[in-house]
Design a protein around this nucleic acid. Structure first.
Lengths: 156, 156
DNA sequence: ATCATTTCGTTATGATATATAACAATAATG
DNA sequence: CATTATTGTTATATATCATAACGAAATGAT
């Protein structure tokens, strides 16, 4: 030995073994990556994850009410209001009237909304291809089965 | 057929096929379930996901700085301050001094902090057993491999 | 040694997400 | 009819997260 080993700029090794022992930790970290990329993907369309999800469900389910939409998105009705306000303000959807219930709104996408939704969904498809590149069908099925069983583990 | 099928209270079928076509959607929904259960699991210990994560990393890496911890948790230094304040206020950790750098703190867990952490980690282990019941080792490995590749897809 | 740059912890601020309570209008029920 | 439930809404509180700026201190360049 010629030189006494001088510790270099210290790459700082941090032990996260305990955390990596939890599957949920890996899911969270992976989801953060997905969310970041998805957020960037939707930005050019002026959409966020929540507004995009709402728009898709309205396009695919014309006439559904805010209560139904909130239930489908698993968020509170009160928190949906601002989301619907935003989409309506951009004239991507309209709050139509339900024939026999003057309380509820029948949410419907405008032509502009449907077109924007279509483009955004296409961008999301690309986004998923990027994120899940090299995920074969079999592995994908396994993944979805696990995620589904997690969802079904609720209240048990 | 004796009775004309009367549609019951309308279970309201909502089409979310588009959303279910995205793997990220399933991950988010599954993670919501995990997060809810984990939050409930940590509540008796007075910990939230972030404070718990920080406490674990401090216990396992005595003397690390706030910058290092923020980097490890992938959050901003500024947002870590309140987390550390909270843990310090409950005397679970201390802000010790780094010998040769009067700017940085050396975070260390107290005995109380280490004991609480140990119990909370045990509770989390139970939580994971609940959530991921019936997840065999092979499937688990596949899952972790996918999640790891997602994380590595960042900036590519 | 001086000066510029960087790093560390911090404060302030804003955007977003989420949960709860209350309310008026309306519908459904007994 | 009277009571109760539902719908959309407002207000409020909390948590998360990003960004900008700052003083103190360390580092690097000249």
């Amino acid at each position: 030995m010629t030189h006494p080993e001088r510790t270099p700029p210290a790459p700082v090794e941090i032990n996260d073994d305990t955390l990596r022992g939890f599957v949920g930790y890996h899911i969270k970290r992976a989801f953060n990556v997905i969310q970041d990329d998805l957020t960037a993907t939707l930005k050019p369309f002026g959409l966020r994850m929540l507004t995009h999800t709402a728009l898709i469900l309205i396009v695919d389910n014309p006439g559904l009410s805010q209560s139904q939409l909130a239930a489908a998105m698993d968020i509170e009705r009160s928190n949906l209001v601002v989301i619907i306000d935003e989409l309506e303000g951009r004239e991507l959807i309209i709050r139509d009237r339900v024939p026999n219930d003057r309380r509820a709104y029948a949410l419907k996408a405008t032509l502009t909304g449907r077109r924007l939704c279509e483009k955004a969904v296409a961008a999301c498809t690309d986004h998923e291809a990027r994120i899940f590149a090299g995920l074969d069908t079999s592995t994908r099925d396994t993944l979805l089965k696990v995620l589904s069983s997690v969802r079904n583990s609720q209240n048990s």
